[in-house]
């Protein structure tokens, strides 16, 4: 069990109290135990969305910015819309914890330290995942589609059939993949196999879960390229989120660069990169290296302004977070 500390800065008393209650619920159910600490000593900071807290965001500690659901989503790597549920808190804390583990692993590697890394299992999974993600991308985009590929793991074998748009997996490995702890080898061609004892799942789901392990854009996608979507991903199965809807809408209309997507969707670059990675592994992404997105005005300035007002008002009335 790993221990990490969390500090609350500028949050209202009821929010802090709710967070502490949620942490109590989480502890014992998660691989990381979270405790409250002073800001100077904490591993992670949880901040109110307030200009007065900018100094903390400029520091080197991961910050989770809490914003009210009637505010715009702040451009920060980790955010939570208030009010939030315990599962949302768990999700963001897991992301932060993984980043902390990865960065400590990177720092130690750079320092050439021979000692074993903490949480080495997660680190191994991440490094192996790069090979797996690239091989999945190659399998789904290859013109010469092999009927079946396989990936090995200590928990079993996973099969991928790009032509069927499906992967085949058994329960123990599926649970590992879902909990982002599986260590999967790169895909390689497989012989015909009886898959009747395997669960059939859509490749898009595997692509999505694999992409969540990446901390940045994978090396097999061009960082300075423009990206468009051939068709919409099934965003719903990939955790419905406004940012994904926004990115999908824009990318099906025009090629976009990563920075444009982050600005348009109001989300962190890491979320954009994971989304692009998932779309690439689902064979939905078209990469145009170095191409600039076209600039096309389609409406007079007054029309969009009025529409923006309607859209904001409608979202507010329907309880759709901004």
């Amino acid at each position: 069990m790993e221990n990490r500390t969390l500090a609350f800065i500028g949050l209202e008393a009821d929010t802090t109290s709710a967070c502490l209650s949620m942490l109590k619920i989480m502890n014992g159910r998660s691989s990381v135990e979270w405790m409250q600490a002073a800001p100077e000593e904490a591993d992670v900071l949880m901040l109110a969305n307030d200009d007065g807290n900018r100094q903390w965001q400029d520091g080197n500690k991961p910050c989770i910015v809490i914003y009210h659901n009637n505010e715009s989503k702040p451009a920060a790597p980790y955010t939570l819309s208030h009010p939030f549920r315990v599962m949302q808190l768990i999700s963001v804390l897991e992301d932060v914890s993984r980043t902390l583990t990865e960065s400590s692993s990177t720092v130690d590697t750079k320092a050439n330290t021979p000692a074993p890394q903490p949480a080495s299992r997660a680190a191994t999974a991440t490094s192996g995942q790069t090979d797996f993600s690239e091989s999945l991308y190659q399998a789904v985009t290859s013109q010469d589609k092999q009927a079946l590929y396989q990936s090995e793991s200590p928990q079993g074998t996973l099969y991928v059939s790009p032509s069927a748009g499906a992967y085949f997996i058994q329960e123990p490995l599926y649970n590992e993949v879902r909990h982002k702890t599986a260590s999967l080898s790169a895909l390689k061609p497989a012989n015909e196999t009886d898959l009747s004892a395997y669960i059939r799942r859509p490749i898009a789901e595997l692509a999505w879960m694999t992409a969540q392990l990446a901390s940045s854009l994978p090396s097999w996608l061009p960082k300075d390229g423009s990206f468009r979507l051939k068709r919409w991903p099934n965003v719903r199965s990939a955790k419905s989120d406004r940012a994904y809807l926004s990115m999908s809408a824009l990318m099906t209309k025009q090629p976009c660069r990563r920075e444009q997507l982050a600005a348009h969707a109001g989300c962190a670059q890491q979320q954009v990169d994971r989304f692009l990675s998932a779309c690439a592994m689902s064979n939905l992404l078209v990469c145009e290296a170095g191409a600039a997105a076209p600039v096309t005005r389609t409406a007079t300035p007054d029309e969009p302004r009025r529409r923006v007002s309607f859209i904001q008002g409608l979202r507010h009335r329907l309880g759709l977070s901004s």
Binding site: R236, S248, L250, K253, P294, V295, R297, I311, L320
Partner: peptide
Amino acid sequence: LLVDALLCQIEADDCRSMEA
């Protein structure tokens, strides 16, 4: 979800003029 996806599409149409 359907309404939100529709609104995102309307926004994307309006944002096609955004700065590159």
